[in-house]
Amino acid sequence: MGLIKYISGIFKGVWSLLQGMAVTSSYFVRPWTIVTQQYPENRKGNKRGRSKKKLEMFERFRGELVMPHSENNEHKCSACGICEMNCPNGTIEVISKMEVNEEGKKKRALDKYVYHLGMCTFCGLCVKACPSGAICFSQNFEHAVFNRAKLNKILNNEGSKLLKGVE
């Protein structure tokens, strides 16, 4: 009995290995099931090799924080500092200045919006908290730089102004 069991065990074992090989070899002859993306090549969506699909991130993807500007170099940030308060690890620094507007009133305005990308955990609390929708996440995910100082970014453009109608 022992010998029969031993020999049948060998055959069962070999059969189970063949079962597994059937799976792998079935994929070997089905090239349309390949899911690999040719990453650096598919950024521009060129059609060399298999990289036909262009790499596109989803609309909600949290890549890095940006401040959208209009054509007239206007942003929506009123320098209230709510994003700075909501940030868990001090990624955002809102530096404000006092400005005199047309009516002669003193008003707080944005001087520099400093964003430390190296500290950001991309939790999205700042965008959620912003009352005027001044900041959003872009889809750029390639953050590697040669110098750490380059990770400290100023989000508002040079000479930009507050969009009219935003309080």
């Binding site: 069962k12 074992g13 070999v14 189970s16 290995l17 079962q19 597994g20 059937a22 799976v23 792998t24």
Partner: peptide, 13 residues
């Protein structure tokens, strides 16, 4: 397929 590949495999068992 997971079962076929690994669960039934004699070495794994």
């Amino acid at each position: 397929e997971y079962d076929q590949l690994l669960t039934g495999n004699v070495i794994m068992q």
